[in-house]
């Protein structure tokens, strides 16, 4: 089935929970209501004609006015895929976890929590995965400011000319 047909099917079943579908971009996607996400995902997985048995990608994207979580679903038995998106507010974004439906979501949601700051309700082990445990902030946000130092190591590199002069001074002292 083509993605647009899948979205029509979802609209027929869930009505206004499917907020919009975009056709003009290279890859069409469907924006869904965050409160209905679990139900829609379960339907997509269990319906025999859709059978989306694999969550092949889950990404968090930070736009200026919202945060989006994008789900790329795929079915190995029917060889078709779909793209779902949820739009969340930028301060304290939260959405239900799909870990109970696809186990691959476990690590992917931890990464989105770490880098974008989305809180997944019901996740079994939501902690930072790529950054150190005591890192301040969420790096993939557009307004992220790099810290000047971390545990005494400065993140600023001085110009190599300065370093060469220092080495020359050390040599002269000897």
């Amino acid at each position: 089935m083509e993605p647009l047909q899948i979205y029509e099917r979802l609209k027929g079943r869930f009505g206004e929970r499917i907020l919009e579908t975009a056709e003009k971009k290279p890859d069409p996607f469907a924006v869904v209501d965050p409160a209905a996400l679990l139900e829609i995902c379960r339907y997509l997985r269990e319906e025999p004609e859709l059978a989306m048995d694999c969550l092949s990608n889950e990404t968090g994207v930070d736009y200026k006015d919202r945060v989006e979580v994008v789900y790329h679903l795929f079915s190995y038995s029917h060889r078709h895929g779909a793209v779902l998106k949820v739009r969340l507010p930028r301060e304290a974004p939260r959405v239900a976890t799909v870990e109970s439906i696809w186990k691959s979501a476990n690590w992917m949601e931890r990464e989105i929590f770490d880098l974008v700051g989305v809180n997944f309700e019901g996740h079994s082990d939501l902690r930072r995965i790529l950054m150190p445990e005591d890192w301040p902030g969420h790096p993939l946000r557009k307004d992220f400011v790099e810290p000047q130092e971390y545990h005494g190591i400065s993140t600023v590199r001085e110009s190599p000319i300065v370093r060469l002069d220092q080495l020359k001074d050390q040599h002269k002292k000897k």
């Binding site: 950054m131 790096p139 992220f144 790099e146 190591i153 400065s154 993140t155 600023v156 590199r157 190599p160």
Partner: peptide
């Protein structure tokens, strides 16, 4: 040596001679 092409990164230590 100096961070290489990852000097733009937020999580990279620019050069091992800092430690």
């Amino acid at each position: 040596n100096c961070g290489g092409l990852f000097q733009l990164a937020y999580s990279v230590c620019d050069g091992v001679d800092k430690v």
